[in-house]
Amino acid sequence: MTRTRPPFLDGLLASLPIVLGYFPIAFSFGVAATRADFTALEAFALSLIIYAGASQFLALALLSSGAPVLVAAFTLVAMNLRHVLYGPALMREAGADAGRRHAWVWAWSLTDEVFGQALGALARGQRFSEAYMFGLGFGAYAAWVAGTLAGALAGGGALEGWPALNAGLGFMLPALFLALLLSILSRPQLPVIAVAGLATVVGTLGLSPTSGILLGMLAGAVAGLVRR
């Protein structure tokens, strides 16, 4: 792929749909935190230190209900266990000579969406670059932290006067995942995708949304083992 921009800037531009998706979600997290009697500084600290959307909402519920500290912490740890697969899956697609010297920094931003966007770029033939990962990750992380702070400072009801904007922004992440799915779609991957989707529905409806995500990913990855 011919590059016309520095990789960092390329990554930053590629983070745009994630930024637009993250900001309103982080904003609503900031609002929810202040509604649960946390200060703006505490909401900001949760986003800065944990940086994992769904588990931060769970953290609010656990902390405000008085759950023991270690129980709350390990519930959040278990919820994010799926991230352990993202790095190896990404580096496998990046190739044997892909740089990873600075992974201890950029891998911090390897969330679901950043992983999906990076993998999609590789599937479209882009060469792996740590600078690209820095740009992609920085955009997403900055949007998450800034959105949280804005929401915590604005307080409740800030987006309620703009229902169409609120709805459009709320659809940003499903739209991003669908676009990413289309970008990696290939005939050999169809059984993996079908099994993962089906297992997610069964797990979500039968158990819980978190179980659905874990079950979908594991079932899809196992389907990759048996299809050849």
């Binding site: 697969l85 899956a89 995942f177 669908l178 990413l180 799915l181 979908g216 899809g220 990855a221």
Partner: peptide, 20 residues
């Protein structure tokens, strides 16, 4: 092979979980 399938599986899962 498990890791190669993890990416597509994760993206499919996250799409279904977000639209459900």
């Amino acid at each position: 092979r498990f890791l190669a399938a993890t990416g597509p599986a994760a993206i499919a899962t996250l799409f279904v979980a977000s639209i459900l």
